[in-house]
Nucleic acid binder design. Sequence first.
DNA 1: CTAGTTCTGCGTATGGTCTACGCATAACAG
DNA 2: CTGTTATGCGTAGACCATACGCAGAACTAG
Lengths: 253, 253
Amino acid sequence: MAAKTDDSGPVLPAAIESAWGLRERPPKGPRPGMSVPAIVDAAVRVADADGLAAVSMSRVAKELGAATMALYRYVGSKDELLMLMVDTGYGPSPGPPAPEDDWRAGLTRWAWAEHKVLRQRSWLLHVPISGPPITPQQLGWMEDGLRCLDGTVLGEGEKMSVLLLITGYVRNEATLTSQIAEGSRAAGVEPSEMMPAYGRLVARLIDPARFPALHRVLRAGVLYQDDDPDDEFVFGLDRILDGVEALIQRRAG
Amino acid sequence: MAAKTDDSGPVLPAAIESAWGLRERPPKGPRPGMSVPAIVDAAVRVADADGLAAVSMSRVAKELGAATMALYRYVGSKDELLMLMVDTGYGPSPGPPAPEDDWRAGLTRWAWAEHKVLRQRSWLLHVPISGPPITPQQLGWMEDGLRCLDGTVLGEGEKMSVLLLITGYVRNEATLTSQIAEGSRAAGVEPSEMMPAYGRLVARLIDPARFPALHRVLRAGVLYQDDDPDDEFVFGLDRILDGVEALIQRRAG
DNA sequence: CTAGTTCTGCGTATGGTCTACGCATAACAG
DNA sequence: CTGTTATGCGTAGACCATACGCAGAACTAG
């Protein structure tokens, strides 16, 4: 009769709960020789140095001077470790918008912050994300993004959708440029030669009669140039923000 | 003096070249018992039935009644097989826009076509894409998208950027909704209960003082509702197309 | 018709992955 | 001192991709 019904809903993995500061150490048993943050930091170090593919349980254990199976006392599975890696990989959120920023300036800053993180840690893009964000820092990013839209006429659901739209774009843009970088490393080509090589390849493959529009793009030299990736980024971001602005003005007017 | 210099640039994997209809069968040796398309179809069948994780070389071979290593006579590596799976998984492009469609209607149709494919074959989202598109049908999709923008004032580079923006959005939206679906299957929860459960979870975790904006979203009930995913999709797509429209009008006016 | 060449199918083996299980030990509670 | 509980981790199982090499089939040249 004392026990409350368990309304916890979906059960959180143990390591995530401890990331939120819940769950205290039981007083019995030998003292732990490692800690979850230490393991996650080691895994992040491996990923930073050699990419996500190099992150195996044994490699992370070696990094810590421990045995492979020791890690499983701290994380329930490799997937759990990956989730925690994403959390610390993103790092702390960029903070609330500056007082002088309107929503557009704020979101621009917010998008650039994520852009910068993903450029530095492109392995974040390779982590198979397996659900909506539940780690502290991920929700921190969301919070800061929402604050940028605080004064606007948009509904709460619309704010959320706008944020989703922008993170999605940032992730996508980062994925594309990192693919080019990784592809050039794999093929042993200069990164600046990657797009031109791609352009030549497509030109060799397609039949202008069956791919007229694509052929025109090639003739214009679009794929041959090694554009500044930041220009690409700004273009798309401005398009999206223009779209949001149109919505806001329609709602207001 | 006869041989031309090899200007082929980056060397295409053998199986991709044969997808373009280059490369003929050498006349000697035993007749092949399989074919690349048959292998790719079998792999797609496995992915459709049991997801991308079930696609292993041995599983595909079993599907064909062949030995594992026999496949390597046809595809150079598993990655190559994955690339071909993406090509046939997307299927033929939706075709050029209807004559009565303006650019916006055409791109809307184009986006919905990809949306439909990704909803049916969500494993396509899990394939680690390893470079810009080079398979026939992928370039076919690009061609059809470019044609939607044919009459507009946009430059060729801008058309390309707009297309990238839209596919990126479609992929991202599909990723999110498929994650919810997969998460609900993994947790054994009704799909319609997934978002409400997520909302309750976040509400339990966050401190309203530290996450005021997020807290407000929760109070508005946004995360508790099981929205029609199509509505989400339309919202984002309209925002992007509004942004493109703003650009076109600025260029024109 | 025969010999040589070349390609197919595939068995074997290597080195990697994650992780279930169980044991010895360490630290506390009573 | 004894029982309980948690830790570290060795072993082993079940997968995985794929390098290598051999037997035999199908063609060509003589």
